[in-house]
Design a protein around this nucleic acid. Sequence first.
DNA 1: GGGCCCGCAGGG
DNA 2: CCCTGCGGGCCC
Length: 318
Amino acid sequence: MPTNYEQLREENIARNKKLLEGLMKKNAIEDARRPQPKRTRRVDRKSAPGKPKKRMQRTDDDEIEDPHPIKRARPETPQSGVRRSQRNAGKAIPDYQAESQQARLPRLVTTKVGVDHDRDPNRPSGKRIHDPKTFGHIPGIPVGTWWESREDCSNDAIHAPWVAGISGSNEGAYSVALSGGYEDDIDMGDYFTFTGSGGRALRGTKTNPKNLRTAPQSSDQSFEHSFNKALKISSETRKPVRVIRGFKLPSPYAPFEGYRYDGLYTVEEAWMEQGLNDGGFLVCKFAFRRVPGQPPLQVKAEGEADDNHDEDSASFTA
DNA sequence: GGGCCCGCAGGG
DNA sequence: CCCTGCGGGCCC
């Protein structure tokens, strides 16, 4: 670990944060200049007296005009404060205080891997009914849909790869997964930075061969890499990219467990910088912006935020 | 907690 | 075919 690791970390985070804030400001100005879009929801009925509002205060579970209602989980609701570890996924959740919570909240759905979802009866178990290699939303999968595993998410055609964070082609990227693999990525919800793929020694070394699926950075990334190239193309075509957030992402916008579809984003910038890795290898970076007009992002409640960023006591390494 | 190693889907 | 990939299960 280089001695300037901490410094690089600070620099990267500060620079990327600044970049995102710049984008945010710029877009806010542009949006204000643009003619107001037509309202799709009627919010201007100024609470006529005696007429109770149809819709209660919006909660995380509210769905806006979703023609395909499905069962959704509430991954942000800790069950008795127990954070389920990955290896418990698939097993039943210990149901500690059943009634009190279930009266108010939808049950945390824990469909087993491989078992059919009840979300779409048309889909045979484990099979897709939609093509993940398309741009934009997938029919029947509203923003906010949650899965226990990447496999389930893949079956719903939101993000095809089970492991890889980017899915795309020479037409651009279809989807990305935010799983917290890069420490200096910043997630501000509507804006985030994202690191490309490649440059990892998945096969280990000659003397110590391995057969890994993920590994530490061991060489420079490049925009020649097809996935990174796809994202760069997306930054030029401005086609929307589906985004899922995973439980490992150290962010208030990450789900408490599993994976969640957070809607469409555009790639605003693509650049390279020294990555926060043991060796200072270059990485491809991208800045994303959430397409306006989508259901609000779900945010972790107070007290269940990830510890990762809470303590500034340089406890990032073990 | 960490290490190991696997199936799998997708791309070349 | 082979190789890759910010998963996931199992064992320690």
